[in-house]
Simulated assay, not measured.
Amino acid sequence: MEKTQGFPSLLAYFRAIQPISEEAAEALNSIAFEIKTPKNKHVQEIGQTCRTYYFVSSGLARIYYLKDGIDVTEYFAFENDMIIRAESLFTGKPSKKAIQAIEDTELIGISASKLETLFDSYPEIERLFRKMMEMSYVAYVNRIESLQFHSADERYRQLLSGFPSLLERIPLKHIASYLGITQVSLSRIRASIR
């Protein structure tokens, strides 16, 4: 069988999580599509229903919501990260959160309904997405625990150690809201580290 083209970096990412056959890879490629989103534009707006799994192939995106009119960043997605609004994707209800490109961003989208049809024919695809959901859940729990048990300084240091290029790529206001602190507090923390 001829080698799969299409989205080789996405397939490499998938195969690092769960081995999938060439036939399954072809099936995934057949339902995947590319989305180019300019800096600061939305992939999905607040109030829309999420019906797509997104993977960042280049650039950077975030999930955010508004609380009392204040923009709060919940999640950053770098290259090869999945970005979805799970509460909307799995319930079919409109989301109170948005997905926004922080840089000019290229994403690969996979329709949730088309993916569901592949699960019956390709159990390895279903296992792959189950593992990715488990990984996302663990990351989410770790984030909640970080907010509960670590100081703002510790959360900032953790974030920097995981993503050293963060300050070059993300506006400080988004980093501060992600950490659950004000931009003034973030400036103080940054000054104390220098």
Rank of each mutant, 00 (worst) to 15 (best):
Phe78Tyr: 08
Glu168Leu: 09
Arg15Asp: 02
Glu126Tyr: 14
Pro8Ala: 12
Cys50Met: 06
Asp104Leu: 03
Leu186Cys: 06
Ser161Gly: 06
Ala32Cys: 11
Ile99His: 00
Lys3Glu: 08
Ser57Met: 02
Ala101Phe: 01
Tyr64Lys: 01
Arg130Thr: 14
Phe149Asp: 04
Ser151Thr: 13
Glu79Ser: 10
Phe129Pro: 05
Ile84Ala: 13
Ile110Asn: 11
Val138Met: 12
Ala32Leu: 08
Lys114Asn: 04
Arg130Met: 10
Tyr13Arg: 07
Ala77Asp: 02
Leu11Cys: 09
Arg155Trp: 03
Gly6Trp: 12
Glu134Thr: 09
Ile20Val: 15
Tyr64Val: 00
Val184Thr: 15
Glu124Asp: 10
Ser161Phe: 04
Lys67Tyr: 13
Leu179Phe: 01
Tyr122His: 15
Arg188Lys: 03
Ile181His: 13
Asp120Gln: 06
Ile46Trp: 00
Ala152Gln: 02
Ser151His: 09
Phe90His: 12
Thr4Trp: 05
Leu89Lys: 05
Arg130Ile: 12
Ala24Gln: 08
Ser136Asn: 05
Ala191Thr: 06
Gly109Thr: 01
Pro19Met: 03
Gly59Phe: 01
Asp153Cys: 08
Lys173Glu: 00
Ile102Ser: 00
Val56Glu: 01
Lys3Leu: 15
Leu167Ser: 11
Gly92Gln: 04
Gly180Tyr: 11
Gly69Asn: 07
Pro94Cys: 02
Ile17Asp: 11
Arg155Asn: 06
Leu172Ser: 12
Asn40Gln: 09
Ile102Cys: 01
Ala98His: 01
His42Thr: 10
Gly6Ser: 05
Gln183Gly: 03
Ile17Trp: 03
Phe90Tyr: 08
Pro171Gln: 05
Met132Arg: 09
Lys131Glu: 13
Ser187Ala: 05
Cys50Glu: 08
Glu45Ala: 05
Asn40Glu: 08
Glu116Asn: 13
